[in-house]
Each structure stands twice: as structure tokens, then as C-alpha cells.
């Protein structure tokens, strides 16, 4: 059943709507919410939502509980190929839990949180941005790690990154829900503005696996092929560009690299010169690599878990 959570008028003959699909099983059970599209340039969640809704709708007899799918938290951002909300400065994932008296974006954030609260589990799907390519991973704040890592392991992602707490991250959807005792896992994978079909299918399978663990799916599910690498905060090396230029690499993320191994190089196309060679300072698992080649000093090129 399609439900509208937010509906307001836009200036010229159009409604701004945020909708969800509520699929109820034949028997009562847990409530799982799958949300995505907070950043308008992240599209992997669209295929995941499609596959989930299609498969569950066609196999309702296996569902014991309720699946709620929110494909587009930021429909205007998706439509205009913008990460943020058009005409609004702040990242939508920095304004939760919202404010019913604030701007339209803050009112929207408030309405969404209120709608989701009380779910037994929430999966918030992101897919990096235009600049970085990410190994399929789950990100968990260290303050909620003990509770959430055991759930995350069922998703079949390659990597679980337990990261440090930061004050600015207290305004994310995941943090706001977890504070409200609604468990929320954040998934990151792929790259902005593109869909990687095989990654999406893996996550769909992982979500069914988690649903099985939650006791809300009785259908067959393939066991995850890989056991995730789990990273506790503080042991991730960030490789930032030493110089501005064009970053070239032959490597993909999700690979192991050795100390001093060449990750890529930054070049000057005008002079035909290499400006700097990018080498790994550690041995470990490279779970992020730059996708957009133009870099300024400081641009992130890779993240490596020093395993």
C-alpha cells in the first residue's frame, strides 16, 4: 500500500511528495524500514528498493511482519541530480531529527523521523558520491557498535566500519533514530550517479538474510558468500592528495594493498609530468578509492583499513 508521508505544494502546479510502500505479511511480526535517496546523487538504493518490493510483493506468503520501503527521501534532489535539497544550504543528513517549526527541509526531516520511529530495524542505504567508489559496507557509530554489529553481519557486505563519534554526525538520520531506540544501520556502496547491479543484488540478498534473522521472512535465502572484515575506529588511513592535478589509478576498491605499493599517480596533462606518486603507507584493506579524477590538495583518494 502506497502511503504519503509528506505532501506540500510547490509554487507552480505541483505537489512535493515523499511516499513509502507498506507491505504487510500474512502474519504479524517485526517492522523493517528500508530508506534511501537522502542524497540525490546516490542511486544504488533505487535498484535495491525495486528488487525488494518486487520480490516481497510476489512472495507475500513468506512475509511475517511489515516491510516499509522509502525510495526517495529527497525527491527534488534526485530529480535535479543534486546531492542536497534544491535551494537549501544544509545536507539533508545533517538536519535530523528535524524541526516542525523550521524550514520546509527541517519540517520534512521531522515528519520522516516521526514516521519511522518504533521500527524494529531500519536500513539507510547510501552510495558514496560522485568522487569516491566504496566497497559494499556497513557504517556504525562506535557508541552503538555493540548492539548493531551483530545485525550488520547478516547483510553480507564486505566490510563493517565502526567509526568514531563526532558531534556533527549527531544530526544524521541514523544517529537520531538510534537515540530514539530505533536501530538503524547505514549501508554505503558503489559510486554516485550510477547503479552497480551486482552490488545491489548482494544487498537485497543481505536484507532478506537479515529479515530471516529478525524472524520476518520464511522464504529461502542464500547465505552470504563472504564474512565481513570488521574495522574498529582509529585504524583507518586516509590518503589525501599532496598536490592538485589528475589522479590516475588502475586499482579497484575492495582489494588488499601492501605498504609502499603504488595506488596511483597525480599528473599534469599540460606539461606531461607526474606530480606525485601515491603509495600506500600501510598494508591493509583498501575499501575506498577515488572515482572522480580531478583532485585538489587534500582531495581524498583512498581509505585503507590497517588490518
Amino acid at each position: 500500500m502506497i502511503k504519503t508521508i509528506v505532501s506540500t505544494e510547490l509554487p507552480i502546479d505541483e505537489k512535493f511528495r515523499i511516499r513509502k510502500n507498506v507491505i504487510s505479511g500474512t502474519q504479524k511480526g517485526p517492522r523493517l524500514c528500508v530508506v534511501t535517496g537522502t542524497h540525490g546523487d546516490e542511486l544504488e538504493g533505487q535498484m535495491v528498493c525495486y528488487e525488494l518490493v518486487k520480490t516481497v510483493s510476489e512472495n507475500l506468503k513468506f512475509l511475517e511482519g511489515t516491510l516499509e520501503v522509502y525510495p526517495a527521501f529527497n525527491p527534488l534532489g534526485i530529480d535535479t541530480i543534486q546531492r542536497g535539497i534544491p535551494n537549501f544550504d544544509l545536507d539533508m543528513n545533517r538536519i535530523f531529527p528535524g524541526d516542525p517549526l523550521g524550514t520546509m527541509a527541517e519540517q520534512t526531516a521531522y515528519a520522516l523521523i516521526e514516521d519511522i520511529k518504533g521500527a524494529d530495524m531500519v536500513i539507510d542505504i547510501h552510495s558514496s558520491n560522485l568522487y569516491l567508489r566504496e566497497t559494499p559496507q556497513v557504517r556504525i557509530n562506535e557508541k552503538t557498535a555493540e548492539k548493531l554489529v551483530p545485525f550488520a553481519e547478516h547483510l553480507g557486505m564486505d566490510f563493517i566500519w565502526v567509526h568514531d563519534a563526532a558531534t556533527v554526525l549527531e544530526a544524521t538520520l541514523a544517529w537520531s533514530l538510534n537515540v530514539a531506540e530505533t536501530p538503524c544501520l547505514v549501508v554505503e556502496m558503489g559510486v554516485g550517479q550510477r547503479i552497480n547491479n551486482s552490488m545491489c543484488r548482494r544487498l537485497v540478498n543481505g536484507i532478506f538474510n537479515l529479515m530471516k534473522h529478525l524472524g520476518m521472512w520464511t522464504g529461502k535465502v542464500a547465505s552470504p558468500e563472504t564474512k565481513p572484515v570488521i574495522c574498529q575506529g582509529g585504524s583507518v588511513t586516509f590518503l589525501n592528495a599532496e598536490t592538485s592535478g589528475v589522479f590516475l589509478t588502475d586499482l579497484k576498491c575492495g582489494t588488499r594493498v601492501s605498504e609502499t605499493e603504488t595506488i596511483g599517480m597525480i599528473v599534469d596533462p599540460l606539461q606531461g609530468k607526474m606530480l606525485s606518486r601515491v603509495t600506500s603507507p600501510v598494508s591493509g584493506y583498501m575499501f575506498t578509492i577515488r572515482a572522480y579524477p580531478i583532485v585538489y590538495e587534500g582531495s581524498l583518494m583512498a581509505r585503507i583499513f590497517n588490518s
Binding site: 568522487y131 586516509f238 589525501n240 587534500g298 582531495s299
Partner: peptide, 21 residues
């Protein structure tokens, strides 16, 4: 380059991303 806001990067990080630097 990345649509980040320098005024939301303080106190900054000299080894971090461009606008953090």
C-alpha cells in the same frame, strides 16, 4: 569542486580534505 562549505569545516584539519585544509 565538491560543493562543500568552508564555514562548516572548522576548526579544520591540515591533513584532511581540501576545504578542511
Amino acid at each position: 569542486m565538491d560543493n562543500t562549505d568552508i564555514n562548516r569545516m572548522f576548526p579544520g584539519y591540515s591533513q584532511g580534505e581540501t576545504t578542511q585544509r
